[in-house]
Simulated assay, not measured.
Amino acid sequence: MAKRNYKGTPGLAVRELLASDDGTSDLYAGTASVYVKCGDPVEHPAPLHEYLASRLAHSLGIPVPFGELAAIRGSDRAWASAVVGASGKGAPPGDVAKAAAAEPHVFAGICVFDVWIHNVDRWEENIIWSPEMGLWAIDHERAFGEFNPRTEESLQEHFDAVSVPFQRESVLPRSEFADRWASLIRQHGPYWAKVATEAAHRRKLANRPVLKQYEEFLSYRASTIFSLTSKAFGFSPGLF
């Protein structure tokens, strides 16, 4: 991955302000930079996985850039997410050890979230961290064990699978923080999964039988999240 420049004011860069007729004198319509992942409209894993992961992350409280489905070339759909960086440029990959030390609670949350959704692609290239920006998780198309709903494979094959986030960097989350995140997932995960998959169906990202697999996958893994995190990170079973 090419090195990303990081200069200027942290946050979104609004490139243009246009007058708005929505009723207040200080409200404008603005344009800003986004990253776009294109895919065929139906059951394509990139937009589907990005959408589900984004909805679930926001429900849990994991910092991910805002994103939504986007119309491309009139009718093609893609996933578009805000560029979180400086002056409209993406921030550089984060130093995992520094990020974990500076924001151990958020770092643990990202790790446990990745275990829950079985994200097999969490390295330093897929986080953003700096003292100014804080810690953010990005890129989730390879969640759900890279499951492709267009194949004959079943998500059930991944129900108990574990991929350790940041394994290459050998940095583990702190168990006391990980347990708190796991407790939230165990308590609320099935409901969040139901809401996210229903919203994905309304957006015609996949049909109901396919999305039912995702809901069952997430609900099952929410119920076993403590054993999954124990397997991933070598923790004793959680006490929360």
Rank of each mutant, 00 (worst) to 15 (best):
A86S: 11
G109K: 14
E141C: 11
M133R: 12
V115F: 02
A108C: 10
E146I: 02
A99R: 02
I127P: 04
A137L: 09
C111Y: 03
K89A: 15
A86I: 02
D139N: 10
W136F: 09
I110L: 15
W136S: 08
D95Q: 02
P131A: 06
S130V: 12
A99S: 09
R142E: 13
I138L: 01
V96K: 04
E125Y: 12
I127C: 02
W123P: 00
P131M: 06
E132V: 11
S81M: 03
G85C: 14
V96E: 07
R142Y: 15
W136C: 08
S130Q: 12
A82T: 10
D114Q: 03
G134S: 15
E141K: 05
I128T: 09
I128Q: 06
D114S: 04
W116E: 07
H105A: 14
S87E: 13
R142C: 13
P131C: 07
P92T: 15
N119Y: 06
E103K: 15
P131F: 09
V120L: 07
I128K: 05
H118Q: 06
L135Q: 08
D121A: 05
R142T: 14
V106M: 13
P92K: 14
F113L: 02
A101H: 05
G145M: 04
I138H: 01
P104Q: 03
P104R: 05
V96T: 11
A99C: 01
E124T: 14
W136M: 10
P93A: 04
G145F: 02
G94A: 08
A108F: 10
G90R: 13
N119S: 03
S87K: 10
D121M: 06
W123Q: 14
I138Q: 01
A102N: 03
C111G: 09
D95H: 07
W123C: 10
H105V: 13
D139T: 10
G109N: 14
P104K: 03
F147D: 04
V106A: 09
A82F: 01
V115C: 08
A108Q: 05
W136L: 05
G145N: 08
H118E: 12
G134D: 13
E103F: 12
I117H: 02
A91P: 14
C111V: 02
A91M: 13
P104I: 04
A97Q: 05
F113I: 06
W123A: 14
F107V: 11
H140T: 08
F107S: 03
G145S: 08
G90Q: 08
H105D: 15
P92E: 15
V106D: 12
I138A: 00
D121E: 08
H140V: 06
S81T: 12
